[in-house]
């Protein structure tokens, strides 16, 4: 088994965790502001597609990332308009994002490339190795497997935590999620805060999608996110809407994914298809066993209207 649990496995776990971590951060910001966002999956697909399309059109993968940010903004603004401005049902609105995200990205592939399903290769974001980290004792070899992009993603976790828990903006955002009426009475523009939070969640989810499409791979494939947006949501719930624990859960999902992948090459007597269900089973088991009831911010899911 020592051959199985190698540095490569854990590195692969970290790589696989990134596209869950980014949408998780988005979902967490969104829900802490009081808006349910089950649309992360659709937003991720939009980002994955946008990244590939822009990278293909411009030939520059960095502009591809920018394209992902653009599609993320778009999907975020649409969801924010539906569920914050027009006070529509948040679950239904986000479901629409998922359906449109999956349908539209798949439909646009043949329009742009003239073929169904999978796009040809596009320029992918270079993942330069980090200098010197290999020499760090203990974690050095693991870090050496990571690229700068990965580190940026992990740094975002810290940044989101800092802003959410330590700054005035974070306090405002959390206030909107706990009690929109109280936040409003304190002079906080609840609609604006929530609008921004939902839009941001779109951008973060889209970046998670882009990571899959032009960092890990170099192409777009219909439904390529494989439910990672939903896993991100489960991680957030299991982490009880807190950044640190939710981050750890994401790492756990990444590890489960990595084990399933590695088992596929390693052994032939394990049912691989069942192993692919591992992260989802894990999520269910986690939700079934954890302590206390899963309740999020007090005002989540309630559209706000001034009395």
């Amino acid at each position: 088994m020592s051959d199985f649990f190698t540095i490569a496995l854990f590195a692969s776990a970290l790589h696989l965790a990134v596209p869950i971590i980014l949408p998780m951060l988005g979902g967490l910001l969104c829900e802490r502001s009081g808006v349910i966002n089950i649309g992360l999956e659709g937003m991720m697909l939009g980002g994955a597609f946008g990244a590939v399309a822009f990278s293909y059109v411009t030939g520059n993968p960095w502009l591809g990332l920018l394209g992902a940010v653009g599609t993320g903004l778009l999907s975020g603004v649409i969801l924010a308009t539906m569920s914050v401005l027009l006070r529509g049902d948040q679950v239904i609105g986000a479901t629409a994002i998922n359906l449109v995200g999956a349908g539209l990205t798949a439909a646009l592939v043949p329009i742009i490339w003239g073929i169904d399903g999978t796009t040809p290769s596009v320029p992918k974001v270079p993942t330069p190795e980090l200098p010197f980290v290999g020499q760090i004792p203990l974690v050095g070899p693991l870090l050496a497997e990571l690229s700068a992009i990965d580190l940026v993603a992990f740094a975002l976790v810290g940044a989101v935590w800092w802003v959410l828990m330590r700054t005035d903006m974070g306090l405002r955002l959390r206030a909107c999620g706990e009690s929109a009426a109280a936040a409003d009475a304190a002079g906080i523009d609840v609609t604006r805060v929530r609008f921004i939070a939902v839009t941001l969640s779109g951008v973060l989810a889209a970046l998670g999608g882009a990571y899959l499409s032009i960092v890990t791979l170099d192409l777009f494939q219909a439904s390529m996110t494989q439910g990672r947006g939903f896993l991100a949501l489960a991680a957030m719930v299991f982490g009880k809407w807190r950044v640190g624990p939710a981050f750890l859960v994401c790492l756990g999902f990444g590890l489960a994914d990595a084990i399933a992948l590695r088992a596929q090459i390693f052994t032939h007597d394990l049912p691989h298809d069942l192993l692919f269900a591992l992260p989802y089973v894990l999520a269910l088991v986690a939700l079934a066993t954890f302590v206390g009831r899963a309740t999020g911010p007090a005002d989540v899911g309630k559209p706000f209207r001034r009395a």
Binding site: T167, D168, A183
Partner: peptide
Amino acid sequence: SLIGAFSVVENLIMGRAQGSALSRLT
């Protein structure tokens, strides 16, 4: 109009900070 999940002091300062958006963000 208080938020139960917050401490007293958080309830007091919420929404009151002055300064630029950037400083309030960082």
